[in-house]
Amino acid sequence: MLKILGKAPSINVRKVLWTCAEIGLPYELDEWGMGTSRPAPTREFLQLNPHGLVPVLVDGDNVLWESNTICRYLAGRHQRADLLPPDPLARAHVEKWMDWQATDLNAAWRYAFMALVRRHPDFTDPAAIAASAAAWNRQMATLDAHLAATGAFAAGDTFTLADIVLGVSVQRWQATPISHADLPAVRAYYERLRQRAAFVSHGATHP
């Protein structure tokens, strides 16, 4: 059985749990991270992931970290071409939105989220919070325009891994107490995702 080291509220762990649910994979969740009984990485944990971050996937003798990479591995390992197409161009259209989520979108929301949700003492500058919220809305507007063009999901008509990593990000944007841009395509997208049982279980909870 797969072992996932992490905690269910983590946005990156939720990507992996949602992917497992879509594929129908059983797993053991071994709780690690802030808010659990093991908040700090041990030497043994660092041997699995030298960066000390969750999630970590243990599949037999194989160990992986980085949430988007884990999601790609699971889809490929179980031949879920619907989630990650084998055709190079179709796959690239999925992966470009996964990479955008991990880079541009994450960079935009970090300060506002850490300040307003995590209440971290290092994130208290009002100007920086406002700038982060504005950047976050701009990035979400980019997603909104794209979803308006596809009329359905990130890579086109069908649900893919891109929608897993974007879905948890949309939920975080909605749950964070900022002034939200009016993005009708994002709202419709979120409602489409809410029709999936795996999203309700793993994507639609926690900020």
Rank of each mutant, 00 (worst) to 15 (best):
K15T: 10
P41M: 07
R14Y: 13
A175N: 05
L46F: 09
P9M: 05
C71T: 15
A107L: 01
F153T: 11
L64N: 02
N106P: 07
A108S: 10
P55N: 12
N49I: 01
V168C: 15
W100L: 00
E31L: 08
R187S: 10
M1Y: 14
L83E: 10
G203A: 13
G151H: 09
L46Q: 09
W97Q: 03
L161Y: 14
S201D: 15
I129M: 04
S10A: 12
V186P: 03
F113A: 12
D163I: 15
A115N: 04
L89Y: 12
L48Y: 06
R196A: 06
L57K: 11
V186E: 05
P86M: 09
S67C: 13
K15I: 12
M34D: 14
L46E: 01
L74K: 05
P39A: 05
A135I: 10
H146T: 02
K3T: 05
M114E: 11
A90Q: 02
L183S: 03
H78A: 04
P126Q: 06
A127M: 06
L83M: 11
R187Q: 11
Y111W: 07
A130T: 05
R80K: 04
P39N: 01
Q47M: 15
V94E: 03
N49V: 00
L48K: 15
K3Q: 10
R119E: 02
A133W: 00
L5Q: 08
F199A: 13
D144Y: 10
L161H: 15
R118E: 02
L57G: 05
G203W: 10
L89D: 11
F159C: 08
